[in-house]
Design a binder for these strands. Structure first.
Lengths: 255, 255
DNA sequence: CGGACATTTGACAAGCTTCAAGAGAAGTGG
DNA sequence: CCACTTCTCTTGAAGCTTGTCAAATGTCCG
């Protein structure tokens, strides 16, 4: 099960020094200066591991802090009182979560792990400290907030306007490319630790209909999902079905 | 047509000095220091008026800048190539738009005016200048980005999980409260310069079904929309229908 | 091997969309 | 100021995508 890829090492612990961070060794992330690294390290409280299926925090929690996902997969979600759940977006290594909690008395969404995950937790006033001490890092935070917003926009377009098959095509392309940009691919297959229920809840579809639509795409020979891995056999055709042509940025900032 | 309310004066021009800004005179916005006011003014390029139904910029435009909505109503949207349109959120005075364009080579959404609007346009490097010179203002920018994200989350929950009537109840409550927080109410009615098509496109519903659902809520005596004004007769009941209990912050930062 | 959970399939119901057309409101020009 | 045009709102009818209920098959793991 051990992988060479640094972004797949969910079983390994997070190093003490940010300078030794596996993420920062990846070409997918901006290089930080020595001073910035030291600063980030000073703002880092601890590492928190969350087993698959467990929550980092849930809706209504108070004092949920600011986190960077170090390894593994997770997702943000909101629920209605009767249990309906909407997955807002999926979190991959490097993603920042908890920015909204900075400005709200209690958390407005939950975060749950899909695989075993490690989060780096930052101090309560880390955002303000960053803003006053390291504008370049703060710029990165805004960059990230802005990109999350971009994906939420895209997802809103999806759930609001696209049909079931279009939605699924869009989500699969999106995740496929994000993992690709992070160097998580293995040959022509991407990791995909989602269950169909996650896909359904992310796209506003029922589980049954999600399954039927997935089968349809499979029957058309366009996709294959097996053993937690996703293969796209007709990326261009899927792109046209979904009318989705976005590509994730190849290099991202990291807090 | 002339109102006493400073936030309704779409027909009036924006003052030269930010210190004279009508928005800043409202208790809905944080007070800025003298230095901050001067700084913001130095970053402001000009005022741009956009007539109702016209675009501030459209998808694919390059070099769209950073704007604050000074007066009037507008909305952000995305479209699919076949014409389907999703309204992402509605913009009210004080709202910041164009942050995403800072980080993208071309704009990923359009902005269209619902009423006659005035936008304050900022310089290309205003964000970076703010970050380095006025962290408190930059904190406000992140606050705003975070709150937009919060609404997008809420809207995603809506389009993904709620039924037509629930969606409409949610949107009407949301807009009702936002206008209320801005002091735009007139007795028990709120301004609502939307057509049913806007409501439909914001919620991912067809125009016809939107109309039917609106009629239903009207027949139940819960709402009334007439002459561009919205009245809610059973706010609590609507709240329970939508399972939507959020309230907008009473005081917001302003760039 | 057994139990829990995920996926798959069938049948039916329902909510929503589409097509179509009339009624009302608002803007335009003579 | 009124006739004309155009846009918005409203309502009916039919059809389709999607949801719900139910149960079988497959898979993982102790």
């Amino acid at each position: 099960m051990s992988k060479v890829n640094p972004l797949s090492m969910s079983e390994l612990d997070c190093p003490k020094r940010c300078a030794d961070c596996r993420l920062r060794a990846s070409p997918s992330f901006h290089r930080a200066s020595e001073a910035e690294l030291q600063f980030v390290e000073s703002q880092r409280l601890r590492t928190r591991g969350v087993p698959a299926g467990q929550a980092l925090f849930v809706e209504g929690d108070t004092g949920a802090g600011l986190f960077t996902l170090y390894s593994g997969w997770a997702f943000r979600y909101k629920t209605l009182p009767d249990g309906r759940r909407q997955i807002l977006n999926f979190l991959l290594p490097g993603d920042l979560v908890g920015l909204q909690e900075e400005f709200a008395s209690q958390s407005v969404h939950g975060v749950e792990a899909l695989t075993h995950t490690l989060f780096c937790e930052f101090a309560q006033d880390a955002l303000w400290n960053t803003l006053t001490a390291h504008p370049r890092l703060a710029y990165g935070v805004i960059w990230r907030a802005s990109h999350t917003e971009q994906f939420l926009d895209a997802n809103l377009l999806t759930t609001g306007q696209r049909s079931a098959v279009e939605r699924i095509a869009m989500l699969l392309i999106h995740l496929y490319r994000r993992t690709e940009a992070l160097g998580m691919h293995d040959g022509d297959s991407a990791p995909l630790p989602l269950q169909q229920l996650h896909i359904a809840d992310a796209l506003g579809l029922s589980l049954v209909h999600t399954n039927r639509s997935l089968r349809r795409l499979h029957a058309l020979g366009m996709i294959s999902i097996a053993k937690g891995r996703l293969r796209l056999f007709a990326e261009r055709k899927l792109e046209r079905i979904a009318e989705y042509y976005d590509r994730p940025p190849s290099v991202q900032p990291l807090l």
